[in-house]
């Protein structure tokens, strides 16, 4: 009887010793929160940098980009719900969003390249669009957009 009791105590002690290593788990959590903080700070820096570099023109472009993305998503949800019956119309509507988005992004890249020139002196080679002036890129943009709209209108029929 006494022997049994001692065994029971031993077992309880063992069980406790097994349960105790909960403290290392909190130390494992620590790195996750730090990476999260790092990520947060990275995002913050990106945002700050973004807003610092934001000119009214790029702001306008980004607004338009956002609008196009939302419109594209709306159409995609619509096609999933309703079905793709006038498929050419769906393609036309969706492609007009995507195409306009692509053209706008190209315009933004070319413009941004131009603005960066003032900030970083003496790095002529780093520029991709050396020979394209902002006026030229804007003209290209208008020309390409007009072609896009023309094609889309005809494709929708």
């Amino acid at each position: 009887m006494v022997k049994d009791k001692s065994i029971a105590i031993k077992k309880a002690a063992q069980a406790q010793s097994r349960a105790t290593p909960t403290t290392p788990a909190t130390t494992v959590v620590q790195p996750v929160s730090t990476t999260f903080h790092e990520l947060q700070s990275a995002i913050n820096t990106t945002f700050k940098d973004y807003f610092r570099n934001l000119t009214p023109r790029t702001k306008l472009i980004d607004l338009f980009l956002l609008f196009l993305v939302l419109l594209g998503v709306l159409q995609f949800i619509y096609v999933l719900l309703i079905g793709n019956f006038p498929f050419n119309a769906f393609l036309g509507g969706f492609i007009s969003c995507v195409g306009q988005f692509v053209l706008l992004v190209s315009l933004r890249l070319q413009i941004n390249d131009e603005t960066k020139e003032g900030q970083v002196e003496g790095e002529e080679d780093s520029k991709i669009f050396k020979f394209i002036s902002p006026e030229r890129s804007f003209g290209d943009f208008i020309f390409a957009s007009l072609i896009l709209h023309f094609i889309v209108i005809h494709f929708i029929n």
């Binding site: 419109l71 019956f85 006038p86 050419n88 969706f94 007009s96 969003c97 306009q100 209108i153 029929n157």
Partner: peptide, 19 residues
Amino acid sequence: RSWDITNSWLYIASTLLVI
């Protein structure tokens, strides 16, 4: 024509909106 099909009105509207 597309405008005869009610399904495609959203696409036409969105294209016009983009323009």
